[in-house]
Every structure is written in C-alpha cells, then in structure tokens.
C-alpha cells in the first residue's frame, strides 16, 4: 500500500512515468463515481469525509446522469409496444403497461421528432400551397421560425400540462398518480401526430382537417381513457374532459399555425 503510494508519489514528479499517473487518474474518478452512485459503499460517519458526504450526494445526484438511468431503462421492443398501444386509444390500459417501469425515452424523442416533423412538414405544406396558387416558388422562403414555435409549444405542452394535472391529482387526493407516469403517458399520446403531420402535407384543406380532427380525437381519447382509471370512484369527470379538450386544442393549434 505504502509502496504503491510511494511509487506513485515519486513517479508523479518525473515526466517519464506517464502510464503510472494515467492509471491513478483513471482509478480515482471511478471510485468517486461508485461512491456517488451508491452511498452504501462507504458507511457514513466512519471518516471525516463520510460525515458530510450523504447530504452533498443527495443534492449532487440531480446533476448525475446515473440518477436518471431508471427512467430510460427500456429496450427497443418495449418502446415499440408502448407506441403501438398509444394508438389503440380505447384500451385504457397504458398505465398498467408502464406501471413497473415508466420511461422518459419515449416522451423525449417522440416530442423531439414531432418538433422536427412539424417544422419540416409545415414548410413543405406552405410550399405546396403557394406553388398551387401562384405556380411559381419564387415567393416561398423556408421559414426557420417554425422550429422555435414548434419546440416551444410541444416541449412546453409535454412538460407543463402533465405537471399541472399531477398537482391537481395531488390536490384531489389521487395518490396513484405519479409525475413520471403522467409525463410518459402524455408523451406517448403525441405519437399519433407524427404520421399525421406527414399526411397533412397534402395540400387539400378538407383532408387536412379530417386528419387532424381524427388525430386529435384519438389522442385525446387515449389520454381520457387512461386518466379515467385514476378517477373511477371519484367525481373527477371534469378533469378527464379538460384533458381531452386540451389535447384536441393542441391538434387544432398544430393545424392552424403550422398548416394554415
């Protein structure tokens, strides 16, 4: 032990002994990482460091990647299964499916995909409409601001609305509702808009409205049916209905602002 320490110390001071230093550098962060990930490796209170480490750890864990890995603990087939069940709006068993393992991978990447799809499909749609009207694309310019609008609206909707419902559920005493599950459910409910935004490129107003109404109704029903499992014995039909209406309003917003 001491010999190693002595070797490391002495070799530290010479330019020639790089490998020894590198090995030491690799070891030190590793032990630090493991102690951060699992505080039980070092019994607290045994040393000077151990006394104040747990408090610092629980606060610093917010910035540690490893504390979020439980929410991304999904495989490809699980994600595919959840996406498929998010299209079956009337089943209402989504919470049963994600019960043990709600993930945030789906919400994050579904909403991100939707943002890109909306920005591009919206631009293509406006291009096609102007082409049809003027038969020349001189007037059309790629509008980058669709990105900003889409990112603001979609990310905001996926984060804020479930949070609001979570606090409402807490207020009404529905203890089963957990924030991550609500985020997960709302995120997956947006999936149906991704293929729909492709369909809405078709420059026929009738088809666009048809598609967006079907998509909004389907996704709203998905949310409403799943929220109903939380509110079965209580008289919270207002919340379920408002969730449905909010989702439908999002659909209308997409149609009006990106494809109007």
């Amino acid at each position: 032990m001491e010999g190693g320490g002595y070797g490391a110390l002495s070799s530290n001071q010479f330019l020639g002994s790089v490998p020894a230093v590198v090995i030491n550098d690799e070891k030190t962060p590793l032990t630090g990482e493991s102690s951060r990930a699992d505080p039980r490796t070092f019994p607290p209170g045994t040393s000077y460091d151990g006394a104040d480490r747990p408090a610092g750890n629980s606060w610093a864990a917010v910035f540690s990647v490893s504390s979020y890995t439980p929410y991304f603990n999904v495989d490809t087939d699980i994600v595919a299964d959840r996406i498929i069940s998010s299209i079956n709006s009337f089943r209402g068993d989504f919470f049963g499916k994600i019960d043990a393992n709600p993930d945030l991978y789906g919400p994050v990447w579904i909403s991100t995909t939707l943002i890109f799809m909306l920005a591009f499909a919206g631009n293509i749609a406006s291009y096609l409409i102007q082409n049809k009207k003027t038969s020349t694309d001189l007037a059309w310019k790629f509008d980058v601001s669709y990105f900003n609008l889409a990112a603001f609206v979609i990310y905001g909707y996926t984060v804020v609305i479930p949070t609001g419902f979570y606090f409402l559920f807490q207020y009404f005493g529905v203890a089963a509702a957990s924030l991550v599950r609500l985020w997960c459910m709302w995120g997956y409910s947006l999936f149906i808009f991704i293929p729909c935004s492709l369909l809405m490129v078709i420059p026929v107003t009738m088809i666009r409205w048809l598609v967006i109404i079907v998509a909004g109704a389907s996704s709203g029903t998905f949310i409403a049916m799943n929220l109903k499992t939380y509110t079965e014995e209580r008289d919270l039909i207002v919340m379920v209905a408002s969730a449905f209406l909010l989702q439908f309003a999002l659909a209308l917003f997409i149609e009006i602002y990106f494809f109007g």
């Binding site: 999904v74 495989d75 490809t76 087939d77 994600v79 991978y105 990447w109 991100t112 995909t113 890109f116 591009f120 631009n123 790629f142």
Partner: peptide, 26 residues
C-alpha cells in the same frame, strides 16, 4: 444490442433534420 435502435434513432433524426435543412434552405 437490444437497445441499438433506441440509441441510433436520435442520431438518424438529427442527421435527417440537418439534411432536410440543407435541401430546404435555398
């Protein structure tokens, strides 16, 4: 291997988006 698609999809999404930007912006 079971999560390969989950890791690759976002990469693909980013490159496709950039590629589309290159085409669309004139």
């Amino acid at each position: 291997p079971r999560r390969k698609a989950l890791a690759l999809y976002p990469v693909f999404l980013m490159y496709v988006s950039v590629g589309f930007l290159i085409i669309a912006i004139d």
